[in-house]
Design a protein around this nucleic acid. Structure first.
Lengths: 230, 230
DNA sequence: CAGTATCCTATCCGATACTG
DNA sequence: CAGTATCGGATAGGATACTG
């Protein structure tokens, strides 16, 4: 029996042996959410060192959870895809998320604010359908933050691709949103609705887009578990 | 931010921070299964050192997952009970178990055989209702094992309490079961049915009890996920 | 029975730098 | 961009003994 094994035949223990190592669940979450390339994974798990990320990906490959291969569209670039067993982990990730959203103190959650993570998740879940049928640019400004963490742009391309920039991409901006990181995170997590914190957000630009923000801004997959405070 | 934290506001990460430390999931599994006292927990998680068990219980208490207090029936004895948040972890444990049973190689599972763990789980899930309405004793013998791991007794009391002994309790035995640990584990996990491995089990004693073993022997909670090999 | 205390080391991990 | 290599240090946790 390997050291580090639990030595139990129970399937719970066997699964935990594989999945309950540092960063693994968070990494799988990022893959379930759709990231496939090394540097995309890094953006979703920014505090994980690249060597550990690389190591975990190999372990997951050996375990049959991840398969590695050239990207379909861009050969020469490696992609990490979930296998069937990997996709089945979605139920575990969901169980974690639902439990976490329900039972972890909101207080603790809001001590872990991170604008790059927030914007990266917002990018992923933004719903382009209520937006104009052309390139649309939304700028987010967090005045309390410094340097490259202060200003962000979401660029929604005509066919729904969304890009995240932390330097000005140079396009005309349709809507400027100025708020603080905590408020924006509360909205994303479903702890507040835009209309409830209107006094903490300033809009400039297209008033229609401003007033419909709650519809095109996607929320966290677990937001529905929260009992909307305020 | 504490070292050891993921620094993410995502509920998945927050929950993983709490639950993905060594032994924690396996311990919670044992609590979800019903154990409440320190030494019962030890039997379910035998390879965990008592100091680590004690430490984990304290952490779970701080996290609001476990509450500690005197036993209802036996004051003076401490009991560890799951709080409401703790009971909600059942969905996570189930997700682990279902995934593990489905995707972990049977081979790997059967490398972690452990008679005390198996008997402890069998004790818990045994269904007394098909058995005679009196004290019933079933003896299990694993000839390939040595010493105290070789011989076990399940004592089913009239009102359905089941005791596990590894030394002869002295009662008349109704049924002797002789088999090997791998076969018995396969049955428990739902990888085989009694009638499929009849040639690997010897019965002596009450023939009616022998022939209905599949009905009173409870199976692993995850056995239904397995596609019955052989 | 129900834990606590102590010690010690393996290993995991973080940081950083480097490469094709 | 997509990783690998190296290194050092903290710490988690294993083993064991002990206590009320």
């Amino acid at each position: 029996m390997t050291l580090g094994s639990y030595g139990q035949f129970c399937p719970v223990a066997m699964a935990a042996e594989m999945l309950c190592t540092r960063w693994t669940i968070v990494l799988v979450r990022e893959m379930v959410a759709g990231s496939t390339r090394f540097n995309d994974l890094r953006r979703g798990v920014p505090r994980m060192s690249p060597s550990l990320l690389s190591q975990r990906l190999k372990e997951l490959e050996v375990a049959g959870i991840v398969s590695r291969g050239p990207a379909d569209d861009e050969p020469g670039v490696q992609e990490y895809r979930l296998t069937k067993a990997g996709h089945d982990l979605q139920s575990i990730i969901e169980a974690f998320g639902i439990w976490g959203q329900k039972w972890i103190e909101t207080q603790a959650t809001l001590e872990n604010l991170d604008p790059s993570l927030l914007m990266w998740d917002m990018r992923r879940n933004l719903d382009p359908s209520p937006l104009p049928d052309r390139r649309t640019v939304i700028s987010f400004l967090y005045p309390e933050l410094a340097g490259g963490r202060r200003h962000w742009w979401l660029v929604v391309e005509p066919f729904g691709d969304v890009d995240l920039c932390s330097t000005d991409p140079g396009y005309d901006v349709d809507l400027w949103v100025t708020t603080n990181l905590r408020t924006m995170t509360e909205i994303w997590m479903g702890l507040a609705r835009v209309d409830q914190v209107r006094d903490k957000i300033q809009f400039e630009g297209d008033p229609a887009m401003a007033s419909t923000m709650q519809t095109w801004l996607g929320l966290s997959p677990f937001s529905s578990q929260s009992k909307l405070v305020h």
